[in-house]
Amino acid sequence: MDVRRSRDIDTPIEELIEKASKGDKDAFGVIFKKYYSRIHRYLTHYLMDHGIAEDAAVEVFIQAYRNLQGYDERGKFTGWLYKIATNCARKAYNSRKKERAMLTSMDRPVDEETGATLHSMIGDDSYRPDGLVEKEDLKEYLYELIRRLDKKYGEALLLCDVQGLSYAEASEVLDISENTLGVRLSRAREALYKLIERARKGSL
């Protein structure tokens, strides 16, 4: 069966896991198809490198397949996958941490036509979701800034504010309590604002 064209994408995840854990690689291919995109996006935001994130995402699924028989947390598959992804991302991140982070300036025009800067765009009503191109650029700048935060704050922001995981899911992934996660998120947002402020003043 060519999994790429398979319609099994609608098969319940528990069923796919059951089959894959018995060695059915096609079933696992469907899982890959189903979850690759969001794991890849998470890793891209984390590592800020599309190519490295791609390799890391494949690695996440290979590790998941290897350990599928040990997976017994019914209903928490997404969280389990994010946990593996977070570990892979940390490893990849650490191996690259000597590389200098790409610098950006909030005063650098994001929208060439209007000359708008990142800071002005965040507070500007005219940037509606229909302005997709501009907004995507803006997102990228913000993700770059998140990467410059302390890793534990960056992870909390990426999982909750970017990927949209619930507190319960994200705290499971990070192995911390929801209370601690709440504290981290609040600090992370505060730190992000500070970065934006610094960038606006041109000191970043």
Binding site: R4, F32, K33, E54, V58, I62, L138, I146, Q163, G164
Partner: peptide, 24 residues
Amino acid sequence: LLRDDSPDIAPDDRVWDKFSRRLA
């Protein structure tokens, strides 16, 4: 702005090849 609301896109052929080789 931070929320990643991009639609899920199936992996392209290149990624599939990479994945399939590793999985095999």
